[in-house]
């Protein structure tokens, strides 16, 4: 049911004039993709520095909360640009993207990464004691930082897999993969 609805939504987007314009214009799609990837340096670059600081790998002599607070703004700006360009990339090739197993897995990891960020932020605010000046953050924050690193690495790796067609709807007959990727027509044909 959900796969059918998503496919209909994708087909509706694909019929839009602006969606076709985005994908037809070679440079518009390339610029979008380039901006999406290059903004990694601002968003994930800033985030990883915060995570590395929690693990004591960078600037252990600077209070951890100061680094997190000062990098918050550039990080958010980076993520906002990434989400806008990412949404436009999906809008340009909606059916292909919605039926990509890697895209779906990426969205799940993105969701988990945001839950982790929210928990991490709350833990940081609630952490008691004089840990801020310690070279290494307390264990709960270190765990959150490691989870953040793993999840975002997963997001980037899965994002990189999306253009590859190893498990595209037309390249597999495995019903579990077809269901997970939302390949409605191929499942109905089986």
């Amino acid at each position: 049911m959900i796969n059918e609805l998503l496919l209909q939504f994708g087909q509706w987007m694909e019929a839009q004039q602006y969606s076709q314009m985005l994908v037809a214009g070679y440079y518009s799609y390339s610029w979008l993709e380039a901006t999406h990837v290059l903004t990694l340096m601002v968003s994930i670059g800033s985030l990883f520095i915060i995570d590395f600081r929690m693990l004591g790998l960078v600037m252990p002599n600077v209070p951890a909360s100061t680094i997190a607070a000062r990098l918050h703004k550039p990080m958010i700006i980076g993520f906002v640009i990434m989400f806008i360009t990412g949404a436009l990339l999906v809008y340009a090739k909606p059916v292909e993207t919605i039926q990509s197993l890697w895209f779906r897995m990426k969205m799940i990891l993105l969701f988990l990464a945001f839950i982790n960020a929210w928990v991490f932020n709350n833990r940081m605010k609630g952490a008691e004691g004089n840990w801020d000046n310690d070279p290494v953050a307390p264990k709960p924050l270190r765990t959150g930082a490691i989870a953040s690193l793993v999840l975002w690495c997963g997001v980037v790796i899965l994002g990189r897999y999306i253009p590859y067609d190893w498990v595209d709807c037309t390249n597999t007959t495995n019903t579990t993969i077809l269901w997970a990727a939302g390949c409605v027509d191929q499942l109905n044909a089986l």
Binding site: V37, L40, M41, V42, I44, G45, S46, L47, F48, I49, V58, L71, P74, C153, V156, I157, G159, R160, Y161, Y164, W166
Partner: peptide, 28 residues
Amino acid sequence: YGSVYATVEAVHLLSMAVLGGTVLATDL
């Protein structure tokens, strides 16, 4: 092995993200 190539590409991107993060933090 296409999947190995794509994974190494992703690690390349991640290392560039960290490199960019350190450059931006310092230069800003």
